[in-house]
Design a protein around this nucleic acid. Structure first.
Length: 791
RNA sequence: GCCCGAGUGGCGGAAUUGGUAGACGCAAGGGACUUAAAAUCCCUCGGAGGCAACUCUGUGCCGGUUCGAGUCCGGCCUCGGGCACCA
């Protein structure tokens, strides 16, 4: 008996599929858009961790083809951006060259996975025909005031020599190189994602996404309810208006615009020094500082309720860009204010007390719990919840402020001081200001230059190319200069899913009909690392395009599947030379089908897991078993037993696949194959069905089996098999017998046996044990157990 | 610090969602076949006890609910992830 020759079989079918794609005559069938997050060609090679996500997507796509859908399952390259450029600099190659090489190498790998991508639909975000539309979207945002310029202190990564969006500087360090971010004052392009904060938050509800991803986005948007209160011209946002009577001082952020004006002359020197020191420090330093620092401005404001004088301080624990950049401080009920008040000897007043107590004996720490108001005049005795509303209302009535909401979400810093990105289609004219490049002149091509390395100054390398920079103003014709910053890495991926149905369209980002036919994406598969970045930006773009009438839906990805990461020797796998297992090492030894199966078998697909080099042996053996099953099959007419086995197999695989429990699908295949191997003979149809069921997972072997069973067309022309629930029933059932919940035996009875008969038989079977005891209760769960409760 | 997850054999993991814990694999040990190896096949494989059909015990720890708990509730412990001066 010959061993399964995966090498030649896989080669054979790959060639056949290339000549004749498996999806034929799909027009008119219901559509299914299955999308896997496209790779970022910043290294030369994919590792088995990347494969996991592509295999999941491919299995879903193939399953849908078998279920009779017209499936779009495309692939492309997210090839602009810093990581790709850094990789090029490291290799001392021009980014366009290095990216092209990386794509070629990754594409070769993807082809060896035998995924069903139709390479006619390939996207490359660095292709001018593609980024023309990335620029076009920016232009539409500019027209509507959603793209604007602003000079402000920004997160700057000295290692990458670039500004970072807030989303890229989580925890105060550069998302890519982990270098601490410092503040740098720069003129930047911003996208007003905050205008969409509320919709981005409330529409999360509609999405069938993993809860943790929704939560991460909700936390990132960070909505909180409160009030904005005016203290003699200084506005402060608080979520605790109920504690207003306990506000004994105010603190402004060092960058607050009023600091200079309100500082008393005798405090000026100290305040200036403090502000200067604060701005020089990185946000990491500022955050890691446990010790609170601050300086008194010499100014006082009046608490509108207590009429007490509140000193105004400046301290860097208050953030300039959240709320109003100024806070009312309630040391009795806020931990940070408490620490500050203790350090600088400011008054602490208690205004909340736990219900049922008059007052806390001594405030050793801030009391942040629930309770009722004290020391608050007319508001005494109210609960926190009630007082929040009552004091907000009072403030509003008196014209001292208003109830309001605040978001943590900030506008998106959208320009990068780097070469390898989409040029921003703007021309700066001294007379007209920033002017859009007319649509007819799009795309603004990224010039091909020799020296593309970043500079220390915060200026893009493009700024040095005079004949590119200097251009007439499209509006007045006078000499003007092009914008030299480029777009961030995320720009191209924020809308790419819209392009796949119509990749060559020169007239529009995609034909409206193609969009209507294919979008939104039915199933999106990708890693958790994009929980807030890509997924939030793509949702923002889609909502904007909805508002301007380009698309008819507000959410691009109604269903999302997050695959877990594969670790190797305890660490994340990393691209390139680093750390990981390459499919190139595995494929020659085990083949594509085995690797695909193992990627699924290794763990539940949504969970992180550890790569085990010897684990793949098991699925390779399984494939050989299947091959042996087919090769050595002695065909017989289908017996009752074979029919039942067949339907159980269809049932098990279908249910598990529908639940995306892909690891148990593989173990299900193993169980059923083992069962069939033990049968004295097999009917042909059961094997045919096994081939169809197996085809999304091990497509090469499935085709080979299908052909061997005498078929000339592809196995993918078959419908997904259906099972008959009647065939899942068995003639006899096995019940478990228990006494006091402990296993005491098994009982075989005909399936239709009634309760009394079963109980009688069980009593008889357990007679020796039951005779010495008194039966208190009998429990019977049909089809499962009989339990006697005895004393 | 706050908010999520997760703890099951030597290992990866199953368990119809409250009903036989350890499916399916990996690794290990023993055996068959073979001159030998590879491949394949058979047996053992949580712990303790017994010649044995079996018995007790066992899903991070302590308690609870229930006829019955890996699964539900309360309290801890450990690990992983997210957020982190957001007022």
């Amino acid at each position: 008996m010959s061993r399964y020759d995966f090498k030649n079989t896989e080669k054979k079918w790959r060639a056949r599929w290339a000549a004749r794609p498996i999806q034929q005559n799909a027009e008119g069938k219901p559509k299914y858009y299955c999308l896997t997050m496209f790779p970022y060609p910043s290294g030369t090679a994919l590792h088995v961790g990347h494969w996991r996500c592509y295999v999941i997507g491919d299995i879903l796509a193939r399953h849908k083809i078998l279920q009779g859908y017209h499936v779009l399952h495309p692939m492309g390259w997210d090839a602009f951006g810093l990581a790709a450029e850094n990789n090029a600099i490291k290799q001392k190659k021009h980014p366009s060259k290095s990216v092209t090489e990386n794509i070629a190498s990754m594409k070769r790998q993807l082809m060896e996975m035998s995924t069903v991508y139709d390479w006619k639909d390939e996207i490359n975000t660095t292709d001018p025909a593609y980024y023309k539309w990335t620029q076009w979207i920016f232009a539409r945002m500019f027209e509507r005031g959603l793209a604007y310029e602003k000079e402000m202190p920004l997160n700057w990564c000295q290692s990458c020599k670039v500004v970072l969006a807030n989303e890229e500087a989580e925890g105060g360090v550069c998302e890519r190189c982990k270098h601490p971010a410092t503040k740098k004052n720069l003129r930047q392009w911003m996208l007003k994602i905050t205008a969409y904060g509320e919709r981005l938050l409330s529409d999360l509800e509609k999405l069938s996404w993993p809860p943790r991803v929704k939560k991460m986005q909700a936390d990132w948007i960070g909505k909180s309810y409160g009030a904005e209160i005016d203290f003699d011209g200084i506005k402060a946002f608080t979520t605790r208006p109920d504690t207003l009577c306990g506000a004994t001082f105010m603190v402004l952020a060092p960058e607050h615009p009023l600091v200079e004006a309100l500082t008393a002359p005798e405090c000026k020197e100290a305040v200036d020094a403090y502000v200067q020191r604060a701005s020089a420090r990185s946000s990491v330093d500022r955050m890691q500082d446990k010790e609170k620092t601050g300086v008194f401005t010499g100014k006082y404001v009046i608490n509108p309720l207590t009429k007490e004088k509140m000193p105004v301080w400046v301290a860097d624990y208050v953030l300039a860009d959240y709320g109003t950049g100024a806070i009312m401080c309630v040391p009795g009920h806020d931990e940070r204010d408490f620490v500050f008040a203790k350090k600088f000897d400011l008054p602490i007043v208690q205004v909340i007390t736990p219900e049922g107590r008059d007052a806390l004996p001594l405030l050793a720490e801030a009391y942040t719990g629930d309770g009722v108001l004290v020391n608050s005049g007319a508001f005494d005795g109210m609960t926190v919840a009630k007082a929040k509303k009552a004091i907000s209302d009072f403030i509003e009535k008196e014209g001292l402020g208003k109830a309001t909401v605040n978001y943590k979400l900030r506008d998106w810093v959208f320009s990068r001081q780097r070469y390898w990105g989409e040029p921003i289609p703007i021309i700066h004219c001294e007379a007209c200001g920033p002017v859009l490049v007319p649509d007819s002149q799009l795309p603004v091509l990224l010039p091909d230059i020799a020296s593309y390395e970043p500079t220390d100054t915060g200026e893009s390398p493009l700024a040095k190319i005079d004949d590119w920079v200097n251009t007439p103003c499209p509006q007045c014709g006078l000499p003007a200069k092009r914008e030299t910053n480029t777009m961030p890495q995320w720009a191209g991926s924020s809308w790419y899913f819209l392009r796949y149905p119509d990749v060559d369209n020169p007239e529009a980002l995609a034909d409206p009909q193609a969009l209507a036919q294919w979008l939104p994406v039915d199933h999106y598969v990708g890693g958790i690392e994009h929980a807030v970045l890509h997924l939030l930006y793509a949702r923002f773009y889609t909502k904007f395009l909805y508002d301007i009438g380009v698309v008819a839906f507000e959410e691009p990805f109604p269903a999302l599947f997050n695959n877990g990461m594969i670790y190797y020797k305890g660490k994340k796998m990393s691209k390139g030379e680093g750390h990981g297992v390459s499919p190139d090492e595995v494929l020659p030894k085990y083949g594509c089908d085995a690797l695909r199966l193992y990627e699924m078998f290794i763990a539940p697909p949504e969970m992180d897991c550890e790569w085990d080099d010897s684990g793949i042996e098991g699925v390779a053996r399984f494939l050989n078993k299947v091959w042996r099953l087919v090769e050595s099959a002695r065909f017989v007419p289908p017996t009752e037993e074979l029919l039942r086995a067949r339907h159980r197999m269809i049932h098990d695989i279908t249910i598990r696949l529908d639940n995306l429990s892909l690891n148990t699908v593989v173990s299900g295949f193993m169980e059923h194959t083992n069962y069939l191997l033990a049968m004295p003979g097999l009917d042909k149809e059961t094997l045919e069905i096994l081939a169809v069921l197996l085809s999304p997972f091990a497509p090469h072997m499935a085709e080979e089996i299908w052909e061997r069973l005498g078929h000339t067309e592809s196995v993918f022309s078959q419908p997904w098999p259906a099972y008959d629930p009647e065939m899942l029933k068995t003639d006899t059932i096995e019940l478990v017998m228990q006494i006091n919940g402990k296993l005491r035996g098994h009982l075989q009875v005909p399936a239709e046996t009634d309760k009394d008969t079963i109980l009688a038989q069980a009593r008889k079977a357990l007679a020796p044990r039951l005779e010495v005891a008194e039966i208190v209760k009998e429990i019977y769960v049909p089809g499962r157990i009989v339990n006697f409760v005895v004393k």
